Simulated scan of single mutants.
Amino acid sequence: MQLCRCRNYEEISQRAAELLTAQLTWKKDSTLGLATGGSPVGLYRKLRERFAEGLVDFSEVKTVNLDEYRGLAPENPQSYRYFMEENLFRHVNIHPENTYVPNGLEKDTETACRNYDAVIQRLGGIDLQLLGIGRNGHIGFNEPSDHFSSGTHCVKLSENTIEANQRFFERREEVPTEAYTMGCGAILRARRILLLASGRDKAEAVHAMLYGTITPQLPASILQLHENVLVLADEEALGQ
């Protein structure tokens, strides 16, 4: 695992945009694993700017998102499909049929998870997977557990995660308690992984991910087993 120390969130976003631009220059038809939440917002802004300047092309790109809230329709402003449309997809020349997000409206969890794993397999796997890290060390919605999940699965969100996501909803009661998420095994099968970490509230999880024991109680620790992981972290996330 490689660590790149950045001064602040802006530098994280800039460096991440440069790396994704390089990835798409090298392989125009890359399959990107994308993330939501606060960590990649700056990156997506930088990519929109680069697209407007003619520096990056998404016409052959395919994307698979890490997760989606169970029970939310794509047009719901709090869904992750909506997040991706607003932050990236509708601003660039990516083809809508090449963007994939788990089906939050599929009530049968087995079907939803099986179908999403089939999509990733059909695309030939993920060339570059983008990740954030939760305060409890989750990646995607893989919460602390007694085991690492392999494929896409339905997870009950921890109180810690629900609390962190509450800021996006008017009332706590509106925050979904379940989500479909790509499993740790699927994440590890990505050819490259780029993790973004910003803020003092992430410092404990980042330190444990980098230097602690590999344990499902801190899902991000499994990234120590991957041969091509780059962590972009700012001074606060590194406890500095």
Rank of each mutant, 00 (worst) to 15 (best):
Glu85Ile: 00
Leu32Ser: 03
Thr215Ile: 00
Glu174Tyr: 10
Arg70Asp: 05
Thr63Trp: 09
Ala186Leu: 12
Ala237Gln: 02
Asn65Arg: 09
Gln14Gly: 04
Ser59Ile: 00
Leu225Asp: 11
Leu34Ser: 06
Glu173Arg: 12
Ile214Glu: 12
Arg189Tyr: 12
Val155Ala: 05
Tyr100Trp: 12
Leu188Ser: 01
Val206Asn: 04
Ala22Leu: 14
His147Cys: 10
Trp26Val: 13
Glu174Thr: 00
Gln121Arg: 15
Leu225Val: 05
Ser145Lys: 11
Ala190Val: 02
Val206Trp: 02
Asp108Pro: 04
Gly199Thr: 03
Ser59Ala: 12
Glu86His: 13
Met209Ser: 07
Leu66Glu: 02
Ala22Val: 07
Pro40Arg: 01
Leu195Gly: 01
Gly239Phe: 05
Ser59Tyr: 00
Lys156Gly: 13
Tyr116Phe: 14
Gly140His: 05
Gly42Asp: 08
Ile12Leu: 10
Arg15Pro: 01
Cys113Asn: 14
Leu128Tyr: 05
Glu178Cys: 05
His95Gln: 14
Ser150Trp: 13
Arg167Glu: 07
Ile94Phe: 10
His91Gln: 11
Asp117Asn: 10
Asp108Thr: 12
Leu232Pro: 01
Glu170Phe: 06
Glu163Arg: 15
Gln23His: 11
Ser198Lys: 08
Ala35Met: 11
Gly134Cys: 06
Asn160Leu: 09
Cys4Gly: 00
Ala190Trp: 07
Ser79Gln: 09
Glu204Met: 08
Glu18Cys: 09
Glu53Lys: 15
Val101Gly: 00
Ile139Met: 10
Gly239Glu: 11
Gly104Gln: 09
Tyr180Pro: 01
Gly183Val: 09
Lys202Gly: 02
Trp26Lys: 14
Ile139Gln: 03
Val175Asn: 06
Leu188Gly: 02
Glu110Asp: 15
Gly125Ile: 03
Ala35Lys: 11
Ile126Lys: 05
Glu110Pro: 07
Gly183Tyr: 05
Asp57Gly: 04
Leu223Gln: 01
Ala73Tyr: 10
Glu86Asp: 15
Arg200Cys: 08
Glu227Cys: 03
His91Arg: 11
Arg114Ser: 14
Leu157Val: 08
Cys113Pro: 13
Arg172Thr: 05
Gln224Cys: 09
Ile12Gly: 02
Cys184Val: 15
Leu55Cys: 11
Thr215Ser: 15
Asn165Pro: 08
Tyr180Ile: 04
Val56Pro: 05
Val101Arg: 00
Leu210Gly: 04
Thr21Trp: 10
Asn98Met: 05
